[in-house]
Design a protein around this nucleic acid. Structure first.
Lengths: 336, 336
DNA sequence: CTGAAAGCGCTAACAA
DNA sequence: TTGTTAGCGCTTTCAG
């Protein structure tokens, strides 16, 4: 392994000069700088991040904590985060809680606090009080993306407003019997239930403002997945109960599950039942699904930029950022 | 920040004793070990990975290089890799090439070689000769998962065999006019084209062995996505050309694109056209899609285990591993 | 503009 | 069983 000293020796210089030259610091003659850079390249010199980290206290990496990497939302956020990190020459250390999480506390103590990264960006997790305290005690800049966490600033959409807007879209089309596919099993998986809860609140509020009676049987708890939502719809349809005229699914994957179920039972989307989701999942377009785009890539990019700006001293500590959702009308909702 | 020295001082011990105690090394009295561990905990001591890394030359992290994290296959592999790393108390440093890759070479030089990880696990990339050389020159254990790369061992399926098996499944059902949706645009995105190429070879071989003439117009080049495959099918159907009796899509997402297109044109899957994919994507089940499962989670886990075993000296350098595919018959293919 | 020296927090011989 | 002594490879004062 070739180190600073080796490069220096080969040029008859000192390590400090080489270090300065390589990092484009002032007080190095242009000529020397060139020679150093060339030699470093020739000799295949690479920084030892460990050494740099030890002396500067900076790792030049950000710790990103996710409940899982499989999942459209997470991967979109990760892409957004990564694009910003890469630009800033930061690396990403990925801590996957893997949802199962007997491990969770171990991840928190063992790794985050081991200072692998200069900041922490967390996705959609439901932190316990102790976890929040551990996080705070690290003194690292911290931000969550996607889901509100008490006491931690966040980048995300206004869940309640999104629920209201989706429901309002259906109400505006004349629908009154609107089924809502929501979550419910989040807590079991260490996820934060505030997302489905917020969207449900928005749904109820919109109904209430429109003077539509709330019918609890029209809110079907489940899980943010195609399969679960499909099963819920299958059950509903096969029960012979009257069908709603419209469905507001808390996510596009749930909406797609519902669409597949409807089709499977010979019902037509939009002609027979209107469907709206939230996300703008990559399948929304192929399915012709009307949805509220929540731009997770941008959410991730914004979150990453915030912590990077703080690390570089470019910006003071910023508060939470609410990203607006945008309606994508693709025809799966129709006037009643 | 509380260091080893602080813990030692608080107990009237030396740093080395504390270090030994904390790492469960021998030659520490049980009593001392207990006192040390308690004190470390109380004082909120955490290892400085930088310092440990500097002195041991180990980072206790693995560098994982992906062309993108968005994508079912990649995220499944990542989950598999992560499960093994977590178990072994290794962290994961994720290098996302982001596909665009003017950045690519920068990633290679700047980060991988900076020794952020003790080994490199790469996904589906098409390494250039120089990149392979840079990788080798690091001396780090390296493995690729998913796609064959010249000169690097790999964990993955036998692409050709998979193509043959999928095609054979259709041939066995009596189909003779089999359309193949394949790739083609990989090179533009820094991806390795050998996956679609291998599957195509398998397709041609199976046909040839069955004595079916190869019709180049029945091989539709495109891209591994729902949207592209859907467009290809739309074009084919709308051209008025005779339809094939079966479709072999090089991936489940392509198969789903085809299914959506068929449905959109009033055609029934399996009744009118049989469809088979490869992957066992999470949407395959909801879509009732027959497919060849390629178990990416396991591929990732195996790849990670191989490099970890080598790092720990538990195992000698292993060669490539071929993971068998398994047929999941869900009814989207039917006897002609 | 360049070099010498100190030290980041830890581990790994070697002594005691 | 425990303590002492050197560094790991780099950055960063402070001198020259």
């Amino acid at each position: 392994m070739v180190g600073l000293e080796d490069v220096a020796a080969s040029l008859g210089l000192s390590a400090s000069t080489v270090s300065r030259a390589l990092r484009d610091l002032p007080n190095v003659s242009p000529k020397t700088r060139e020679r150093v850079k060339q030699a470093a390249k020739d000799m295949g010199y690479v920084h030892s991040m460990a050494a740099v980290g030890l002396v500067t206290g900076r790792t030049m990496a950000i710790s990103v904590v996710v409940p899982s990497v499989a999942g459209w939302f997470y991967s979109q956020v990760l892409e957004g985060v990564d694009s910003v990190l890469r630009e800033a020459h930061y690396d990403m250390v990925l801590f996957n809680l893997g949802c199962q999480d007997a491990d969770r506390s171990r991840v928190f103590r063992r790794s985050l606090l081991r200072h692998r990264g200069d900041a922490v960006l967390a996705l959609c997790l439901d932190f316990s009080v102790e976890e929040r305290e551990e996080l705070r005690s690290t003194g690292l800049p911290t931000i969550v993306v996607g889901t509100p966490v008490r006491g931690v600033r966040r980048v995300g959409i206004d869940e309640e407003q999104a629920g209201r807007q989706a429901t309002q879209h259906l109400l505006d089309l004349g629908h009154r019997d609107i089924l809502h596919l929501t979550g419910g099993a989040e807590a079991d998986r260490g996820l934060n239930p505030s997302v489905p809860q917020g969207r449900l609140r928005g749904y109820r509020e919109a109904l209430s403002q429109a003077g539509v009676d709330y019918d609890p049987s029209r809110v079907v708890p489940g899980w943010f997945s195609v399969a679960t939502a499909g099963e819920q719809m299958d059950a509903l349809i096969e029960s012979g109960a009257p069908l709603p005229t419209a469905i507001f699914a808390a996510s596009d994957e749930m909406a797609i599950g519902a669409v597949l179920s409807l089709q499977h039972h010979g019902l037509r989307v939009s002609d027979d039942v209107s469907v709206i989701g939230i996300d703008d999942h990559y399948l929304a377009a192929p399915f012709g699904l009307t949805t509220l785009a929540q731009h997770p890539y941008e959410q991730g990019a914004i979150g990453a930029q915030i912590v990077l700006d703080e690390l570089s001293g470019k910006a003071a500590r910023r508060k939470s950022v609410i990203v607006p959702v945008t309606l994508c009308d693709r025809g799966s909702t129709r006037r009643l």
